[in-house]
């Protein structure tokens, strides 16, 4: 009987210790449901930006993965103007774990395991989310966060993006 609490404690410790070693970065992006005659899912880029607004790295880029009779999905990556200029145009796509298909309206989540962010110096950063929609507009939302300790941040767009939440788990 006396052993049991000890076992539980150990499990508890292990569970607590794991995130300490590995802090995940989670970004949730609300893609608004828009009532428009011709809705196309937006292209969305999510990246980490240094305080001087230079890009640190791209976490996610959602775009049309196929070619259709209007062209190749990559033809419109340039419409994510800010992301394109700050690093997108230098990337080779598709990129493993980064590029994916466009997402439907609703809350979409990007979770980046700490292992992928090895080398990211502790400090202040922004998460930048940019959305550009065919026959629609473009919007950029910046959310500050700290890397190196557990914290959260939130921001919101007004046209092409809804709430953007950032969480660093320890």
């Amino acid at each position: 009987m006396r052993l049991l609490p000890i076992v539980i404690t150990t499990v508890g410790l292990a569970a607590a210790a794991a995130p300490a070693m590995a802090a995940d970065l989670t970004v949730s992006v609300e893609i608004p449901r828009l009532n428009t005659a011709s809705y196309h899912r937006p292209y969305v880029a999510v990246w980490i930006e240094k305080p001087d607004q230079s890009a640190e790295r791209t976490l996610a880029i959602w775009y049309q993965q196929t070619r259709n009779n209007e062209g190749d999905g990559k033809d419109w990556l340039k419409d994510l103007r800010t992301w394109w200029r700050k690093g997108g145009r230098a990337m080779t796509l598709p990129a493993d774990g980064v590029s994916g298909a466009t997402r439907a309206p609703g809350r979409q989540t990007v979770t980046v395991p700490a292992a992928r962010l090895r080398g990211l110096q502790p400090g202040q950063y922004n998460i930048v989310v940019e959305a550009a929609r065919e026959l629609g507009g473009r919007e950029v939302v910046r959310v500050p966060f700290r890397w190196g300790a557990a914290n959260t941040g939130a921001g919101t767009g007004s046209t092409e993006l809804g709430a953007v939440r950032v969480a660093v788990s320890r």
Binding site: D72, D75, W76, L77, K78, R81, W84, R89
Partner: peptide, 8 residues
Amino acid sequence: TTLSGSDA
């Protein structure tokens, strides 16, 4: 002036 894709 600014284009993306495999050709344009």
